[in-house]
Write a protein that binds this DNA or RNA. Structure first.
Lengths: 248, 248
DNA sequence: AATTTATTTGCGTATTTATGCAGTATTAAA
DNA sequence: TTTAATACTGCATAAATACGCAAATAAATT
């Protein structure tokens, strides 16, 4: 087997599993671990995977580690500032959870006089700090990880509402696959949120652009506005323009 | 599992819960606590989390810890410890808001397997940190000061429930006037909570004993158990014994 | 085709890294 | 204060890696 073939095989494995072990590959490809190590080193130098002790990880995996851990992200502040201009006095606004949304809430002007609906406990808590806004929490069973209400009851409630705006903190967005997420229960609620809003706004830091997770929240066509910390004319956003979405 | 994978997992947990325990991680990842400690140390050196005794905290939500530690007065700890013994596995427990209740939640043993219903946002958030409890939030319009749901909707919901226990954080309690409070909207909800519980437990630090506020929540007869930080035989509590209430 | 040249691979060995364990010290809670 | 949980130290072990070198393979040249 040629080196290039091995490399292709390794990258394929990385794409599927997000990681490879040198020992596994050595067996699967019947070459010595030394060879594998050298392969991984080359692929790392090419920048298409991340070599670690014992094997290698997908770059996208590596991103998970970095992006989620960065302290007080300035990107999120930028997004928040762009987003808050969409909110006007008297509006009924639906908010999801997530740190970007929290940042948005923090950046709301104190004199703003609007009503917010949310299913996220931390978002609600943050909203309560604002003197002039009304806060409505749609409750039910709370999901531990996501710290938000989930379940049929929530979906039902949401269906009885028609909001002006819905802001979605977005984990993964992609031209092809739309907005995707991991947990079914969260997705059910997010979909209900989208249905009950006149305009849907996706907030996504650029690292989440062109990433995909297991399960579909909605197609891009269902999103009206996409907000990132980048200039709307940025290279990476070009494919999104053609979908008819407004990019801020 | 590769070290980086562990690190990613840990950071993911941190993002979700704002804190991790070494002991939990050790079990979840099936490595020794030593390894976890070394992991946390590395991540701390990277500056992406804060290592503390027993685990680690998120950098971004560091203030959460401050709040949590600052507010915990020793009296409330004592009350919390007395109260938690009333809660058994499988129970359905109703919780109000307030720092004493928060303290109770914090002192719950991690292995406790019960369902909690609350209308208080901070209480809900605290409950979400417990691995084995189910949390149900009864939502509606949120009241700013009290950080809890209020309104007819909440009262209606509560009326559909029958809980084993109801813990009330108490602002004022008095032999003559019973439990009293300030805000009408809060009182409406508290009354509904009392109605839907088999046993009502009032948690009150001794400063609040023999004080009265404007509006009645309930008469003493409706309360089954009173918990203070004092010895039940304490002088100040004597008049309460004759009302038939159990004092712990 | 034969030979040279360059590249790739495997192996032995020394080194580094990762992890767990035991004993002791320290810290936080009861 | 006492007790239990957690942290630190040093050490042992196993796995992973780096390195040099020689054999094997591929590519290029004559």
């Amino acid at each position: 087997m040629l080196k290039k073939e091995r490399h292709a095989y390794i990258m394929h494995e990385i794409d599927i599993h997000n990681k490879v072990l040198s020992s596994d590959l050595s067996l699967q490809l019947t070459v010595s671990e030394d060879t594998i190590r050298r392969d991984l080193q080359e692929l790392d130098e090419k920048g298409i995977l991340t070599k670690v002790h014992g094997g290698a990880l997908s770059k996208s995996f590596h991103f998970t580690l970095q992006n989620k851990t960065v302290f007080s992200q300035p990107e999120k502040k930028i997004i928040a500032h762009k987003a808050r201009n969409l909110i006007k006095d008297g509006m009924l606004v639906l908010l999801s959870g997530g740190t970007t949304i929290i940042e948005l809430v923090k950046s709301l002007p104190p004199e703003l006089n609007a009503t917010f609906i949310t299913v996220s406990v931390p978002t609600a808590l943050e909203l309560l700090d604002h003197p002039n806004v009304e806060v409505i929490f749609i409750g039910n069973k709370l999901l531990k990880n996501a710290q938000m209400s989930v379940g049929a009851e929530v979906v039902q409630r949401l269906s009885e509402i028609k909001c002006d705006l819905c802001f979605l903190g977005t984990n993964s967005i992609d031209v092809e696959n739309g907005i995707t997420d991991l947990e079914l229960e969260v997705i059910e609620v997010k979909r209900a949120m989208i249905r009950s809003a006149k305009k849907v706004v996706s907030l996504a830091i650029s690292k989440k652009i062109n990433t995909t997770q297991r399960m579909l929240v909605c197609r891009l066509e269902e999103v009206d506005i996409l907000i990132t910390e980048l200039d709307p004319a940025h290279e990476i956003l070009k494919p999104y323009h053609s979908t008819g979405i407004t990019i801020i």
